[in-house]
Design a protein around this nucleic acid. Structure first.
Lengths: 202, 202
DNA sequence: GGTGTATTTTAGCAATAGCTATAAATTCCG
DNA sequence: CGGAATTTATAGCTATTGCTAAAATACACC
């Protein structure tokens, strides 16, 4: 078992570049040549050798997204209260979707909402990831209800769906040019639906 | 000035078919051959002769969308009160984005959120149309505030942005498979932010 | 029937899509 | 140095992309 010729590019940096391109142009709007150019890879075969085909690269890029620019999402769930978690999630989204260091919006939302039959797998993967995010939020809210952090009459599933809708709407707003301040204001408005604590029995 | 060979297809029906394809596959995911096939046109030149190029056809399709499946949007603004208008808009969106007779979601949201440089004009047109919708809602809410239908302290611009965000989030949810009932429930939750009327001075 | 006009048809353009076979290059191990 | 392993480079594959020139076709009007 031996060495072989070394990589001429940094895999992780290349994934970051690929993320930028997919983020900005979507799955179907991105060509292999766009990718190799951005990733600092001179030839298509090197890309296929390192990352598989376009679908597989897209999937790796989504993992990289979740661990990088979207890490705030998982971290938000660690907040001590459910309300703090949702606020961290949505205010984090307001910041992340308008971060000047990245394309606007959220790749999970805008990567492949509507696409040709040839991009079905990409769309399905994004749909699944959005659903997983909503399920994680629901689980967090269910836990909050079970511990009394949310009133017993609250509806974790409905709330999770509502706040996920806000999140996704924010991504669309960001893609359309909304400012960071405007998005934070939307979040403030959205949070006013938070269920009031049950009145303490006298 | 005379006749010439008659059209072999119905222009309006063809536009409806093109709308379906663009709606489901997005601008960039739709090929000319997809369009001619769906529109009942045998040859590409007939399409170009009747509708111009792909960009121009897309624009005509968006007009057709606004006058057809999305007509409820303009009609919602005619409701007597601002609250009824917003409810008509959002509950209408819940119905329209899950209508089994059409693709899921809203073509204005999912048609071209992220796209390659070659699709810039399509993306810009969709962004402009979304902004126009938000502006129309803001105008409706400003009118409501001026007539006392909304309390004087209300923020029409912020509310318009919030409800537009809900609308767009609903479109994403619908594209992801949410049911009609779930979307209506989201709307009910979203409406609870509606500003309370100013207390009548005693 | 002939003429003018608008549409359809046929055929094909240059460019790009995603992807790959083959061979040259560069490393580690012995 | 001589393999073995791995990546890079060259070249090119088939298919499709958006689009169009030129010719054939079908109508209205005279």
């Amino acid at each position: 078992m031996a060495g072989g010729r070394p990589r001429a590019f940094d895999s992780e940096a290349a994934l970051d570049r690929a993320l930028e391109v997919f983020w900005r142009q979507g799955y179907e709007g991105t060509g292999i040549s766009d990718l190799t150019k951005a990733m600092g890879i001179n030839n298509a075969p090197s890309l296929y050798n390192a990352f598989g085909n376009k679908e597989q690269l897209f999937s790796k890029v989504l993992d990289r997204y979740a661990d990088g620019p979207a890490r705030y999402i998982r971290e938000a769930f660690d907040q001590p209260t459910a309300r703090a978690a949702v606020e961290a999630l949505l205010h984090g989204a307001a910041d992340a979707t308008t971060d000047p260091d990245h394309p606007r919006g959220c790749i999970t939302v805008q990567g492949a909402l509507a696409y040709s039959p040839g991009a079905t797998s990409a769309r399905e993967e994004l749909t699944a990831r959005r659903a997983a995010g909503e399920a994680a939020l629901r689980a967090r809210l269910e836990r909050a209800r079970d511990t009394g952090d949310l009133p017993a009459g609250a509806d974790p599933e409905g709330l999770a769906r509502y706040f996920t809708t806000i999140y996704q709407g924010i991504a669309v707003q960001a893609a359309g040019g909304a400012t960071r301040e405007q998005l934070h204001q939307i979040v403030d408005t959205a949070m006013t639906v938070w269920p009031a604590p049950a009145p303490t029995p006298a």
